[in-house]
Amino acid sequence: MFKTLTMTVNGREVSIPVDERESLADTLRNRLGLTSVKKGCEVGECGACTVLIDGEAFDTCIYLSLWAEGRSILTVEGLKSPTGELNPVQQAFIDEAATQCGFCTPGLIMSAVEIVGTGKRYSREELRKLISGHLCRCTGYDSILNALERVVEQTYKHVGHEGEAPGPAGHA
C-alpha cells in the first residue's frame, strides 16, 4: 500500500508517495535519485547504505521508509555547501586517497560526518570502533583512518573543547 511520507532530505522538505514495504535505501535511491546510498548486503552488515537520520548513522537497508516520517535525513549528496564547496570530510577523503573502488565511501563519509560533528578528539583506536560498522575490501581502512584523524583534528582545533558538539556538519 502506498502512503505519503514527509521528511526533510538534505535540508529540503519532501512529501512523496512510498510503498510501505520500502526500505529507506529504496526510497532514497529510487524515488529521490540519491544513489550515493549503496546497497552492499541488505542486512545491515556492510554499512554502504549509511545515512544520518536526525544526526545519527543508520543502515538504511534495514530501516523502513515510513519510520522516517518527520525526520531529517542527510546523505552525501547533501554535504557540499550551497555554493559547492566540499565538506571537510570529503576533502580529507580525497587528500588521503581514502577511496578506491568508492562503493563503501559515501556510507563511511556519513559516519565520519557524525563522528566529526561531535567536535571531540578521538584516538585511532576509538576511530576504529566508530567505523566498525562499515566493511571496506580495498583500503584496509588505513587511509580512511588517516582521513578521519586529519579532519577530527582540524575540527577539534576549530570548534574548541569537548562537549561543545556543533552537530553534524553539512547544512541539515
Binding site: 554499512g47 548513522a57 543508520f58 534495514i62 559516519s111 566498525s132 560498522g133
Partner: peptide
Amino acid sequence: VGGPQIRNI
C-alpha cells in the same frame, strides 16, 4: 552489539 549503526537501530 554489532557495530555503531546496528547499536543505533
